[in-house]
Simulated assay, not measured.
Amino acid sequence: MNPRPHILMLGQYPLETLDSAPKIRTWFLWKALEQIAEVTFVTGTRKSRRAPLIKLIRQGNLKKFDAVYLEAATSTSMEIDLLLLFLLKSAKIPIGIYIRDAYPLFGLSPVTNLKELLLNWAWYISQWFYRQVADILFFPTQSLADCFDFKNKQLLPPASQTNLVKSIYQGPFDTLFFAGNLNQENGWSFLKETMEKIYRVQPSIRLLALTPTQLEDNYPWLEIRRGVLKDILDDLPRIAAALIPRPQTAYNNLAIPVKLMDYFSLGLPVISTPCLETAKIIVDNNLGIVSAPNEFDKASLYLIQDRDKRNEISSNIIQNFLSSNSWDKRASDLLSILLQTQDRFSSKRMD
């Protein structure tokens, strides 16, 4: 029996609390990868991961790893992160790096003071360094990959959990669902307008928002809940659809919000604005409705009232989409790509 491959996985987020999309992604991918490989995993804040990274470097023997995978953060890498990557490259270990986003390329990183300006420059330096040492750059979407000049680019989109729900609920439905911060970036103004329109027609319909946001105003149609996805499982029999009212901007067109896959994990049809990459997933796989913001109320009421259509979509999500877009599937794809790169390295060494 061949030994399981030994993968060095590097993260740049602390995982004590899974309270953000990058942390959730890192944790689930790590756990899925552990099922099929021996994984040495180092992650944490800049301060907490420094010591284990130094220990790795001092121990030497980096050639024991078959491949390396870095889940890079939105921010910059430390000098010790870059040093380890350089040493791994020198040891001819295949390196794959996941590029999460590209805020500076779209003017979305603040540069109002010297510190922010330096961090912005440091992001560009980190990206340049990644391209020097990586054998593969992974991206969540093709549109984001197209923003980077690199010879070997692969897609590694966010994934869904497959164990949260198995049932297709029959209704009746009187609830819509939203997860995330209630702010302009997430389309809070669109969401308010939508719910006000629905409330005037059907005042029994509510919006359940799983959010950390504290609002000053109260709304008769809004119920705020704190927590994680599992905290709304008991509400699922009443939820018709989940909403993604993000404004259609150049950046939102190329990004996939992790909440999209969270919604599918719950078996919920999704109503989204026509941000390109998100819309493509929904339309190509029959997972919901893509709607202009001023039509969100009509799309929402349609899925609330047409239970057959709503449940047709939910059935498709649970029975077809989840299994081919699970974290286990993502980990398997990642390992396969990394080991193919290792095979090419081994062939070159033999030549």
Rank of each mutant, 00 (worst) to 15 (best):
3 P>R: 13
8 L>T: 02
9 M>C: 05
11 G>N: 00
12 Q>A: 11
12 Q>Y: 02
14 P>S: 08
21 A>R: 01
21 A>T: 01
22 P>Y: 04
22 P>M: 02
34 E>S: 08
34 E>K: 12
36 I>L: 07
40 T>E: 12
42 V>N: 04
43 T>F: 04
47 K>A: 09
48 S>T: 07
50 R>D: 14
53 L>F: 05
62 L>T: 06
62 L>V: 11
74 T>L: 08
78 M>T: 15
81 D>P: 07
90 S>I: 09
92 K>H: 15
94 P>N: 05
94 P>V: 04
95 I>A: 02
102 A>W: 10
105 L>Q: 04
118 L>V: 14
121 W>Y: 10
122 A>T: 04
123 W>Y: 08
127 Q>M: 13
131 R>P: 01
138 F>L: 01
140 P>G: 00
141 T>L: 06
141 T>G: 03
143 S>T: 11
143 S>H: 05
145 A>R: 04
157 P>M: 02
165 V>W: 00
167 S>H: 15
168 I>H: 03
170 Q>H: 08
172 P>Q: 05
176 L>E: 03
177 F>D: 02
182 L>Y: 10
188 W>K: 01
190 F>C: 01
190 F>T: 02
194 T>K: 07
197 K>G: 10
198 I>W: 00
205 I>F: 10
207 L>F: 10
207 L>A: 08
210 L>W: 15
210 L>I: 14
212 P>W: 11
213 T>N: 07
215 L>C: 08
218 N>M: 15
221 W>D: 07
226 R>I: 12
230 K>D: 09
234 D>W: 13
237 P>R: 00
240 A>I: 00
242 A>L: 06
243 L>T: 13
252 N>H: 14
255 A>N: 15
256 I>D: 08
258 V>A: 12
259 K>E: 11
260 L>M: 15
261 M>W: 12
263 Y>R: 05
264 F>D: 11
267 G>T: 06
278 T>N: 02
281 I>V: 13
283 V>Y: 01
283 V>I: 11
285 N>Y: 06
288 G>K: 02
289 I>W: 00
291 S>W: 02
294 N>A: 10
295 E>A: 13
296 F>V: 03
296 F>C: 06
303 L>Y: 12
303 L>I: 13
307 R>L: 15
322 L>D: 00
323 S>C: 14
323 S>E: 15
325 N>T: 12
325 N>C: 07
326 S>L: 07
326 S>W: 04
326 S>C: 10
335 L>D: 05
336 S>P: 04
338 L>K: 01
344 R>I: 11
346 S>Q: 13
347 S>R: 12
351 D>G: 09
351 D>I: 04
